[in-house]
């Protein structure tokens, strides 16, 4: 136990500070609805992540948001286990046809008002997989998308900026 505390104390706090994204950055991230969001959320959002067919690369970087460097919860952004608790769906991957109904149902299960963030090139435009017998391509082909965060995968910093853009500046 002593070793544990020693390591905790010597590690210290590694969490980094972030500035909310500037206007031009918001535009790059495809955030057009910030005004509405500002009205609807006072300082916190609950996110349900849905892998709708990703290669899992995007998930790895979304995971990183919870590591001590980014610690995204301190901004009031937290991940929840059910769409019924969520304000925002964070969707990755081209939507595989085998996940199409699951995604639609998850969307329906999310209470209004709700927002959808498409994360990663695949979710934004179909990426390397595109549209085929097995893939519906971009998330917007299946459910309405409000925000896109491109990248393959987007770095935690890009994700952070995209998500902070959803919140009050």
């Amino acid at each position: 136990m002593l070793r544990l505390f020693k390591k905790v104390l010597t590690t210290g706090v590694v969490t980094e500070s972030f500035k909310p994204p500037k206007d031009d950055e918001l535009e790059q991230l495809g955030i057009e609805i910030k005004r509405h969001l500002d009205k609807n959320f006072s300082g916190s959002i609950a996110i349900r992540e849905v892998d709708a067919g990703s290669c899992n690369g995007c998930e790895l970087e979304i995971h990183a948001l919870n590591n001590p460097f980014y610690d995204i919860e301190r901004f009031g952004i937290h991940f929840v286990a059910s769409p019924r608790h969520a304000d925002v769906l964070l969707v990755t991957g081209p939507v595989s046809r085998h996940m199409q109904t699951a995604l639609l149902r998850t969307y329906e299960a999310t209470p209004n008002p709700k927002w959808v963030v498409a994360v990663g090139d695949c979710a934004v435009c179909g990426g390397e997989f595109g549209i085929s017998y097995a893939s519906c391509g971009a998330v917007s082909n299946v459910i309405p998308v409000d925000v896109v965060i491109p990248g393959c995968p987007p770095t935690p910093l890009a994700l952070m900026k995209g998500l902070l853009g959803l919140m009050k500046g």
């Binding site: 990703s54 595989s96 085998h98 699951a102 390397e128 017998y133 097995a134």
Partner: peptide
């Protein structure tokens, strides 16, 4: 099978560079 994306099918006809990306 939920994340079946047709990788084997969409590989057909690709160039070596494009296959490496896939």
């Amino acid at each position: 099978g939920y994340v079946h994306k047709g990788i084997e099918k969409i590989a057909e006809g690709r160039s070596p560079e494009s296959l490496a990306r896939l």
